[in-house]
Design a binder for these strands. Structure first.
Lengths: 201, 201, 201, 201
DNA sequence: AATGAATGAGCCTTCATTCAT
DNA sequence: TATGAATGAAGGCTCATTCAT
């Protein structure tokens, strides 16, 4: 017999743990396959709980993936943002995209973004705001500092950078991770930077 | 009254038209969603034929998409290749990626490549050889002519260019074609070219 | 240009030939697989005609098999019956079942019988009358001649003989024809005869 | 109010019952039609459950029939074998085939055997070993005891007996059970025994 | 007489979701 | 809180049959 207090706390903790286990299972599966290929069965068996339990914590299959989205935004705002407050723009971009390579190294991010943007779900989120906000800040600062080419808008810079990064991650993914993504990312962003840097610098 | 000869041709033509309608329907759907999300029902209803008819022309869902792959390779080798035999490298790249934007404008290409590279299908094709070959030729020529940066290999140039192109197409796709892809492609490749051009040119 | 007369005859002959080709194709397929597993496609491709042509000669898939049934009855009445008019009962039975082994050596007969007896088709034929009639005649004669055991009715004799024959053919079939059916049939009927012969003979 | 223990058992029992209902439905359908003609829809509607439920208990349509095969073998080894350890050979055979008529009364057994022997499944079982073993033991004993005809091998005895039994069951089946199978089986085996008994007994 | 393109009902199987326990 | 049995809509694919040519 446990004390009521301990018991209640344990219960809450257990619940949180179960929720986390489900989340981790779902997230790790996304590294391995497409959303469509992941079944509730996959998730719960990896999490070690029963089917019904899943629906105790998440409203649907999509819901749990929506959570991963929310989390990664939080990660960028809380972890990455502070680390790109100093140094020149090139350096900041390299740090930013190293994080991108690290956290979103899987193209599951792409799959997920697309998924969440699709159809009826379109409304329930406004694209990776956290992630985007951080990048925009770097670029805005770079323009202000005269490091980036003022012939391009903030948005244009971001697009070029993100397009390259996504394309690279995609290639890394279809190659089954055949090359070191971090290095490739550094090279690519570094090289692209030459095309973005303010003329004469 | 038609001649018998014409008559027979009409039948064949009709069949070919149906086949094409199915192909187009499948292909256009791929611009909109993932292979996994496309159903035979989607394809046939867009093509305006019945379920059974689909299987008259294609052996399976995968088959029709494999055809798109084969066709695009042929397109690059026969149509695009001749058009990038002259002009400077920058111009050639712009033409090449304009074709890429036009023909493969969708990221369906990406999805398809991934699809075909996957699992058991991995063996039955070696990645978009036609398309790749043409790009490699442009880059090789550009290096030889001293227009591109010799610090990068042919392969590295191709990767950077393709990553950017794919990333852009991907964004265009998830935006539901919200911006003119051709223009964006031209801008992006043009800008990236600055980072690839031989120093001092 | 052919003469009209020749032409018309040729046409009729051709039609008959086509009909026969379809019949043969259908029948031979029944030796190889179940009715359910045989497709119109199988039949017409083996017959070397088009799908539509099949329906010019037979109303349905079932129809063509009904014809095989009718034919085998005719075979027993016209070919076998005359050959069992003399000799002792044992000999007659051996001849009868040799024919059975020969003509129905495939268990397609069984499959077909079952098929035709089934469901809605039940009405359109009364069991292999030709075949049965011949056997009944042999048995009736054997009883009259005092060669068979009068403790058993004609029907009982026929049932025992047919059960044995069918069971044997079935085993031969599932063994993929691993043993000579004709010999096995002769042995089995011959042995069974001992149990049917009038006591004291 | 039930105790928790009882409660859990009830759930399990219910599941087992559902499984059994599906099994029975499938098995009884096999008495009526060919494997190929039986649909999952037939099975589940007879069992009174939904389509999905079927796949909760059996991996495929073939699977459920494989189970019937396994079970009947077990039945013969555990139930029938002990009951044929005494009495004369004739009596043993009558008991054996009464069981055959009872448990495998349908020719579904035949169809199933054929089915399981077919194609890829050929390897996964060695024909009705349980059932066969028991019969062979009876015959071997009968030969040793001088009750059966030594001019025939064990195998030959078994074949004749099984052919007759199968043929009879087949006829019973296509007659829609128009006569009492048990009686007919007894008569047939009893009669056939006369042809197998050692001469002079 | 012959063709073969087109049809669509029907089959097997999967899986997200519900709900009684 | 946790379970897992049950559901049924939906998907890919087959094939007997029809009909315009």
């Amino acid at each position: 017999m446990e004390t009521p207090g301990t018991d209640r706390l344990t219960r809450q903790e257990q619940a949180q743990q179960t929720r986390q286990r489900l989340f981790d299972a779902a997230y790790s599966l996304l590294q391995e396959k497409d959303f469509k290929d992941i079944t509730i069965g996959d998730i719960v068996s990896r999490a070690g709980v029963s089917t019904g339990t899943f629906y105790l914590y998440y409203a649907s299959k999509l819901d749990v993936y929506y959570q991963t989205y929310v989390l990664s935004d939080a990660y960028f705002l809380s972890e990455v943002a502070p680390r790109v407050q100093q140094g020149d723009t090139r350096e900041r971009l390299l740090i930013y995209f190293a994080s991108y390579a690290y956290y979103n190294s899987d193209y599951s991010r792409i799959k997920l973004t697309r998924l969440l943007y699709n159809g009826e779900n379109r409304n329930f989120l406004r694209r990776g705001e956290g992630m985007h906000t951080v990048l925009e800040a770097i670029v805005a600062h770079g323009l202000q500092a005269g490091e980036l080419d003022r012939a391009l808008t903030v948005e244009a810079h971001c697009d070029l950078l993100m397009d390259m990064a996504r394309g690279l991650v995609y290639r890394w993914c279809i190659s089954d991770g055949a090359f070191p993504l971090a290095d490739a990312m550094r090279s690519a962003i570094s090289r692209l930077y030459r095309a973005l840097a303010a003329p004469g610098r």
